[in-house]
Design a protein around this nucleic acid. Sequence first.
DNA 1: TTGAAAGCGTTACCAC
DNA 2: GTGGTAACGCTTTCAA
Lengths: 354, 354
Amino acid sequence: MSNNSSSFETKRAGIKEVAKRAGVGIASVSRVLSGQPGSSPQLIERVMQAARELGYMPNLMAQNLRRRTSKSIGFVGSDITNPLLASIVGGAESVLSAAGYSVLLTNSGGQPEVDAQRIEVLLQRQVDGLIVLPALEDNAATLAALASTTAPVVIIDRAMAGSLDVHYVLSDHYLGMGEATRHLLKLGHRRLGLAVGQDVRPSRERLRAVEDTFREKGLVADLMVDSGSLSPEHGERAMERFLTAARPPTAVILGGNQLLEGALHAVRKRGLRLGEQISLVCCDDVALSRMYDPPIATVLRDTALLGQRAAEVLLEQIKDPHPTTPVLLPTSFVQRPSCGPVVTPKKRPSRRPG
Amino acid sequence: MSNNSSSFETKRAGIKEVAKRAGVGIASVSRVLSGQPGSSPQLIERVMQAARELGYMPNLMAQNLRRRTSKSIGFVGSDITNPLLASIVGGAESVLSAAGYSVLLTNSGGQPEVDAQRIEVLLQRQVDGLIVLPALEDNAATLAALASTTAPVVIIDRAMAGSLDVHYVLSDHYLGMGEATRHLLKLGHRRLGLAVGQDVRPSRERLRAVEDTFREKGLVADLMVDSGSLSPEHGERAMERFLTAARPPTAVILGGNQLLEGALHAVRKRGLRLGEQISLVCCDDVALSRMYDPPIATVLRDTALLGQRAAEVLLEQIKDPHPTTPVLLPTSFVQRPSCGPVVTPKKRPSRRPG
DNA sequence: TTGAAAGCGTTACCAC
DNA sequence: GTGGTAACGCTTTCAA
């Protein structure tokens, strides 16, 4: 029995104590505190007072267990250190917390198996929904984990393999990359280098955009593609490969801002002047792109919006599950001096492809 | 192939179903599944099999309610979009998830009242501990919220007002900033500009380091201080103020990487050459600092480590609460060409006061 | 309008 | 060893 009435109780007061102190039933306290109608002003006052006096705070763990909801959503990403992801998380968090949801953040470090494991943990925690930016689109464990829940799932910037009952919020990489390519072609570039990440939607869309744009101009796509991780180290390797190729591209497109620093290293090491000897386009705007000398032309997008829309779609699904068509958010190209006209080493038309 | 699905099982199996299927008592299932000793291999096998067949996953909400622990910790920061914070969160997350804890991430947007409110929500969620990087050190609501719990709290890079029962993981800003200042003094600079954030520990420590270093060299601190938000916009304003001052400093120290982009704008707008007409030091290394021309001298620190240590201290406290002394992590100075010898104003056609 | 009581899915204390 | 059965703190019928 809780028969102690003579010392400092540091123990967090429960609904039971509040009821006792207010001299009312437990159910009434619950009703009043959860704002349900149908209580006399008198009762309400007594309960509120008691709650205040005891510094009562409901135990969400118990509340949620009973209500069969957790008012929390899980976010699975590769690495929060990536400013892109950070921005997405930030956007999602603001929308979700405004709606009374908490965000459980997990990093997978880009490892597909970890993705799956994290999803499972979040599911056990009874998250009401999931926002996922998986490392891979066809990892069996990840797909299985996502399929194992009836909670709504929103996938960001990926097109999952198979037919999963999930919702998509995607960037229209094709759009901005098309613009970028058109710009490069207009400047006279005919051979491009393209560095992309793993075989995921953004990489494919970027490649497709470049190829299509070549075709659109009646040209045969002359393209050197390098795919790998999106790290500064790989950016440097990729750029090295491009620059030392037998027939080096005159312009390079970097499919990720993480590649930029390394790529610039390689360019600088060779003493090449951007926009003159080599043109460069990067994806996703960062301070470095803007302030570099010369500034780097960029395919950009509103990453915070990506997170916000994902959160909105998720909340919508939690409220009322229904099929959706993918949300496609625009990307656009910003021309900057890192792209310049191709320097033609020839003085008269020589052999042309075709 | 243990993939048996006789029909559509949308209902998540509970421990009760497992017990029934295994033909054993509920308590036994609980014991086996939570790895408690004292069950016959036979029983174990039957339970495990049943659990596997039903795809049983324990409901952490219920488990935690009963166990009076949530295996989760709350992280309160201002804005995950800040790469520094992102790195700290990343470091903490890796340690915590390795220890079986989930991270509840909240952003306060730098608003002190939101800090408090977020802390309260996390506490209601019964987090086992809190890692907080509060906007302010003396906000009453924040202090009250932190004082209201018996769960361990680790504060990062702040020195809270009053005497709170919390633990500290701090950066030794004094160290690196002292080195930076010594370097500038050695280059002949005698008047410095220092831009810092709000009145929080890092700002105070940086200021103290600069002043002490002047004194250490037997000089009177000739210092122009600007404090405000740590944003690119403010970086530009601060730099403008420095450059247009009656007696402009010959070297400027930026107390936060977010200031850098704006400050560089201001420098560039005036056509000043870094390391020649004006020297610049920034805090916390970013790609922009490294790749800028010239590269920016930097006071750096291991931010991921900051998060890791915070998580470690927290886990330690959860296991065994006891007083601790603050953890102090080093910062260091990296000299780069943005700092050069002071140019003696000789042929300068500018009016001087006096 | 109010309150007693039955759970939510687990764990843990007891008997057996 | 094993299995009832009370809690955990809350919400929600269902009577009163």
